[in-house]
Amino acid sequence: MSGFLAPEAVPGPRPSLVRVVQAFLWIGCVSFGGGRTAYFQDELVVRRRWLTNEEFLEAVALAQVLPGPTVGNLAAYLGQRFAGALGAVLAVACLTVPGGLMILALGWLYFRGMPATIIVPLGRGVSAASVGLAIAAVIRLREGARGLGAYLIAGLVFGLFGPLHWPIHWVLVASLPPAFGLAWRSRR
């Protein structure tokens, strides 16, 4: 994996509200395809360096564990951390309004008779490319969880939640105790 981009963020001053709006508006306008957390990681960790990989993983974990669409939660959580309550509101709005307008326009055309099959080949290319983005994000984020024990826990979660399709609460019941034990030992 040598050469794979995995920069360490340096903790700097909190970004201004304008910069937060810029970042989330960009993500809201370009985050096509599945695996949209990959766009957050690229923009906020790799390019703007507002977060370390570990801080980003913490945000992703909370966004996934809390009820609701993950990326909406992630925008609210990070917006709040970067720039307070107004930051949270604007981050969620910037993430959802551009795509919302686009999907409404397409929906309008669709109900007027545009066949959805027109977009199928486009959608297949987008979905395939977003697989690559999502895997790249996971490889970069490995920096946020160091050591053999951490990777074993990540592998356990992958197996239970991916191929075995366990419901998330059982995945957490199985993985959080060993993860907590490992974290406790390494921090003391």
């Binding site: 395809g33 913490e58 996934q64 697989v131 490995r142 992958f158 993985s175």
Partner: peptide
Amino acid sequence: VAVLRTTLAPVALGLLAAGCYTLVRLGV
């Protein structure tokens, strides 16, 4: 808080990896 952050990191990494698994099945 530091301990919980270190707790959550590998769990989130696994959840994201599982998301890749789903994306591969849907998109490839």
